[in-house]
Design a protein around this nucleic acid. Structure first.
Length: 309
DNA sequence: AACACGGGGTT
DNA sequence: AACCCAGTGTT
């Protein structure tokens, strides 16, 4: 890499840190007194979920279960029920498993090593680095969807980020990571915040961007991407929607319901559901209920199905 | 590499 | 109605 390019990248990091220090949003998990557990909970809730939806749920969880031991002592059914409609309810099960593992294997304290964090359920490449950096000031490379987009644009001049690839992403972000842990944290959080606030997927606000003058995508006059974004499956009529409806039934019935009655309790979906057209609504509902049991989101005893204890 | 996995906000 | 969102685990 040329000396000039090296200098450009250093300047990008410096300006993002300055911008973030002055313009970051106030979130409770960014307060200095926030515990590592609070940060871990915020990161798990934030997976594929907008901050505006996370904040109230985070307050509720921290009030109910201020430490890992508190959550580990609660029935997983209660964590699932409180998770409510935040989405991907397996995260609730996994968060409860995290709490249990932290109590049993780490003396009730969230571990600070990235590898130890990575070993916890639902903690992957992103969350392990985020908790290590934000809660413990470790110099770990954080890469989320915002950062992949910011780097694709500012560094590489591409409109759309490459597909996530933990090894390559880690290596790329590591090259930019400041050696000072406090600055590494500010760069990690700042690049993420810049992508969320100033440089979103649609309509980037280059006029207020601190690195507009250094941005390669802007220098090339915003070429459209050559790659195509991954299409998303329809939600209406999908298995995901039906699973969600079964979970809603289970949350509403603490004592559980007759397994065979599930199809009647779940609102029948639109007839044009597209997939699985050759099996009945009742069959499909019962099959998905079995999946939920396998995923730890429900248990079945005798003829009844309910949230797990 | 491609999917499945929720549900709601945004355009 | 399509796209997007502080991802993870499986195939």
């Amino acid at each position: 890499m040329s000396l000039r390019e090296r200098s450009r990248r250093t300047e990008i990091v410096d300006r993002v840190i300055d911008w973030f220090s002055a313009n970051q949003r106030d979130f409770p998990w960014r307060e200095p007194e926030c515990s590592p557990w609070g940060i871990l909970v915020s990161e798990v809730m934030s997976q594929q979920t907008q901050m505006s939806r996370v904040e109230p749920k985070w307050h509720e969880f921290m009030s109910l279960w201020p430490t890992p031991a508190d959550m580990a002592a609660a029935p997983v059914a209660e964590v699932i029920r409180r998770w409510d409609r935040l989405g991907y309810p397996r995260r609730a099960v996994n968060l409860h498993r995290c709490a249990t593992a932290i109590v049993e294997n780490h003396g009730g304290e969230v571990p600070s090593d990235r590898d130890a964090l990575l070993a916890l359920p639902a903690i992957g490449a992103y969350t392990s680095a985020a908790v290590a950096s934000f809660a413990f000031l470790r110099c770990e490379p954080v890469v989320d969807t915002n950062i992949r987009r910011v780097l694709a644009r500012a560094i590489h001049g591409e409109a759309i980020a490459w597909d996530a690839n933990p090894r390559r992403d880690d290596a790329e972000m590591s090259e930019l990571l400041p050696e000072d842990p406090q600055r590494a944290k500010l760069w990690n959080a700042g690049a993420m915040e810049l992508g969320a606030i100033v440089c979103p997927s649609k309509k980037p606000q280059c006029e207020v961007c601190p690195i507009a003058q250094l941005c390669e995508w802007r220098a090339r006059n915003y070429p459209a991407s050559t790659r195509k974004a991954r299409g998303q499956a329809k939600f209406a009529g999908s298995d995901r929607q039906l699973r969600g409806r079964v979970m809603a039934i289970l949350r509403r019935h603490p004592e559980g319901v007759l397994f065979d009655s599930l199809p009647d309790l779940v609102e029948p979906l639109a007839a044009d559901s597209g997939t699985s057209v050759d099996i009945s609504h009742a069959e499909r509902t019962l099959l998905l209920a079995e999946d939920l049991i396998r995923d730890g989101l429900a248990t079945r005893a005798a003829e009844r199905i309910r949230l797990p204890h």
